[in-house]
């Protein structure tokens, strides 16, 4: 009886631990993706606000030339430390089509904080037309849409290299160590000094990449900080409540055993 009990317990543990994790195992075939130290990582990690703001500057000055972020509103920028006035000023730099007005005409007006981020291209066809036939993906949730998330984006931005000698690279394509198949249509988007930071942070390539990745993770998971904070409370509740229940269980069952 004892032995069988242990058998079943081992089996249960195997299932409990392996079932959720085996999908991760099953999906991660390149475990060599280098891990970067992120401010938002770990159980209590929070976003480095300054880094997100710098990252937004990188996005605005470089990435937004081709990549949309259509799930974001300008008002969302308040969450990363911009004041309402600043957000108004930022959104006013963009033009959106509105209407029809009382005369039945469509008209253009400056964007407001309640508008979504203005996309660089009117539609997918225009985007492809301007990018050698490739479609620059929307970046709103890109870190959730790629395996290894933030690490992938960061490594990708640093991963441009000369192709190996025997490697045949396609017309207008670039070699990138971390892209699946190593061919990427995006030209190296960042390099040292591409964006000037207002806060005096050094604008090296790794710094630019880290900042823009932090911005993208915030964009994909704006709830991250609230989520982790609430998580600690919920787990503590279950643990403390569980301890009381465990004690009651022991006392209740003492006479039975």
């Amino acid at each position: 009886m004892k032995v069988e009990c242990i058998n079943m317990k081992v089996l249960l543990l195997t299932f409990l631990f392996l079932m959720p994790s085996f999908c991760i195992l099953a999906s991660s075939n390149d475990a060599k993706m280098p891990k970067h130290e992120w401010s938002f990582g770990g159980i209590t990690g929070t976003f480095d606000r300054a880094s997100i703001q710098r990252g937004y500057k990188v996005y605005r000055e470089v990435c937004s030339g081709c990549h949309s972020m259509s799930l974001l509103y300008y008002r969302d920028l308040i969450d990363i430390g911009f004041s309402e006035e600043e957000v108004k000023a930022i959104s006013a730099e963009y033009t959106v089509q509105d209407g029809p007005n009382d005369e039945g005409e469509m008209f253009e007006r400056p964007a407001r904080p309640s508008d979504r981020f203005v996309s660089p291209f009117a539609n997918e066809q225009e985007a492809r037309m301007n990018n050698n036939g490739s479609y620059p993906p929307d970046l709103s949730v890109i870190t959730k849409a790629k395996k290894h998330g933030a690490d992938y984006i960061y490594n990708l931005l640093l991963g441009y290299k000369e192709p190996p000698e025997d490697y045949e690279i396609g017309e207008g394509m670039y070699y990138n160590e971390w892209k699946e198949g190593h061919q990427i249509a995006m030209a190296p988007p960042l390099d040292e000094g591409y964006v000037d930071y207002d806060d005096g942070t050094e604008n090296t390539l790794p710094q630019l990449s880290e900042d823009v990745t932090t911005f993208l993770v915030w964009s994909a998971e704006p709830e991250l900080e609230v989520r982790k904070k609430l998580g600690i409370k919920v787990i503590l509740f279950f643990i403390i409540f569980g301890i009381f229940i465990y004690i009651s269980k022991k006392r209740l069952w003492r006479e039975i055993h």
């Binding site: 609430l230 919920v234 279950f238 643990i239 569980g242 229940i245």
Partner: peptide, 12 residues
């Protein structure tokens, strides 16, 4: 409670 801890770890 035990299941709650496990599921919360994943959710949060």
């Amino acid at each position: 409670c035990v299941c709650g801890v496990a599921i919360s770890v994943i959710i949060f």
